[in-house]
Every structure is written in C-alpha cells, then in structure tokens.
C-alpha cells in the first residue's frame, strides 16, 4: 500500500547497473545536444537512434512507449499545432484555417521544437524508469548535493502516496459512521470537514515525527556519513560521462562556429 510515487521499474539490465550520475549525465547531454545542435534533424535522430534503443537496452520499452503515448505525444502534439499556426515566419503558405496560416517554415520550426520537447521529456522518463529516486539522490548527496535538497525531493515522493492511503482510511472510517459521501454535491461539500480535519492534523504530526526521527540519526551533522548501500561507480562509467561531456561541447562549439 505504501508504494513510493515513482516510475521506477526494477529490472536487471545494463542501464539499471549504470551509476545514477552517468544516467543523469546521459539525459542532460541528450537534451543539450537536441537543443544546441545546428543540424535540423538532430533531435529526430536522437529519438530514433538513442532514446528508443536505450529503452530497449534498459528492458523498459513497453512502459516507455506507454508513458510516451499517454503523456509525451499529446503534449508535444499540442505544442506542434500551436507553433505551426502561430509562428509568424515564412511565406510559403500550405494550409489556411480562417485567419490562421500554416507556412512551410513554421511547420518545420514547430516540428523541430516539438521533437526537442519529446527528447527532453522522454529522456527524463527513461531516467525515471531505470533509476530509483533514492538511489539517484543518495549518489548525488555523496557527491556533495546538500542533504536538505535530497530530503525535500525524496520525502515528497514518499509522503504523497502515504497521504493518499491515509485519506482513503479516513474516508472509510467516516463512511462507517454514516457519513454520506456518495450523494449530491452539496451534501458532499458538507462532509469535507470530517475528512480534512484528521488528514491535516495527522500529516502535520507525521512531519514533526519524521523531522525528529531523522535528526535523531544525525541528519544535520556536518561529519561525513557512511552509507549502507554502496553505489558502484566503475571507471567505465567515468569514461562514458567524459565522452558525453565532449559530445555536448562539440555540439555547442559547432553551433557557435556556424552561426
């Protein structure tokens, strides 16, 4: 019941065994290249030859495509339509809709921008599918990310499903006391107090308890902490990261040089 709010899918793949920082670097590199590369077809190519194959390599392809269809494509499609119609560039009108013109140039522009967004969101989806959030955070904390920052992210992911479960129990408890939650809207508005009261009180009490619990384990201590889970970072990972950084630099350099 107390599942974390995360996309993470536990599988045994090459990607899952990569260091989280390597995967984060990969994602950021893909995004930076998609946005800086001077060549028009780069973002499209990145989706086809990098992100989709990577999702297969990470054994998360079915889930990846499901998320893409549900979440990424509608958003990118909307962006595409907006930009195709409202971008005031170009002369070659190919489609007219009342006062809206779709030109060849605005179409090209919209197509690239929509694909850039697809690269950005799908790369992050890929990261979230193959990396456990707490693994990413503990690796980043070990590398110097402030613990408070990691705590905010992790606790948010953890608290939401817990609050959801708690809300469900409260609703059950009040319905057992004859509270009508199924009839008209007005009556349901009236039944909000008995539901929200315990949820807010309970959650506040939990936040305090959580703060005391982590402080009891030396959360704000300045000493270097050891970790129960050692996250491996072999030299192959370091090599991959350097290659990715060099690719990004090349992409940015080309952009500056050509413009």
């Amino acid at each position: 019941m107390h599942e974390r709010l995360s996309f993470y899918i536990k599988r045994n793949s090459v990607i899952h065994h990569l260091n989280p920082l390597t995967k984060l670097t990969l994602v950021l590199a893909l995004i930076l290249i998609a946005f800086t590369s001077p060549w028009y077809w780069t973002p499209h190519l990145l989706v086809l030859i990098a992100i989709i194959p990577l999702s297969f390599l990470g054994k998360v392809a079915p889930e990846f495509f499901k998320t893409a269809l549900r979440l990424i494509l509608p958003a990118a499609g909307f962006l595409f339509l907006m930009q195709a119609f409202f971008q005031p560039v170009g002369e070659t009108v190919i489609f007219k809709f009342y006062f809206l013109d779709m030109t060849q140039e605005s179409l090209m522009f919209a197509f690239r921008n929509a694909t850039r967004v697809i690269v950005m969101v799908s790369a992050f989806t890929f990261l979230l599918l193959t990396t456990h959030p707490s693994e990413l955070m503990s690796d980043l904390t070990r590398r110097g990310l402030p613990g408070q920052f990691a705590y905010v992210i992790i606790s948010t992911l953890q608290i939401l499903p817990q609050m959801q479960a708690k809300a469900q129990t409260i609703i059950s408890a009040q319905r057992s006391r004859g509270l009508d939650t199924e009839s008209s809207f007005i009556r349901r508005m009236g039944s909000l107090t008995p539901l929200i009261g315990p949820l807010v009180f309970g959650s506040l009490a939990e936040v305090e308890e959580r703060a005391i619990a982590i402080e009891a384990r030396g959360f704000t201590s300045k000493k270097v902490k050891t970790s129960l889970h050692e996250i491996p970072d072999p030299s192959s990972d370091k090599l991959i990261r350097w290659v990715l950084i060099i690719l990004v630099i090349i992409s940015i350099a080309l952009k500056l040089w050509l413009s």
Binding site: I170, S172, I196, G197
Partner: peptide
C-alpha cells in the same frame, strides 16, 4: 445503521 465499526487508529476519525 446496522454495523458500527471502530477503526484501529482514533486519529483517523476524530475531527
């Protein structure tokens, strides 16, 4: 009206 149910944690029902 036929079955009364006391939940385990009182904090989940008192408001």
């Amino acid at each position: 009206s036929r079955v009364g149910y006391v939940f385990q944690n009182p904090d989940e029902q008192l408001f």
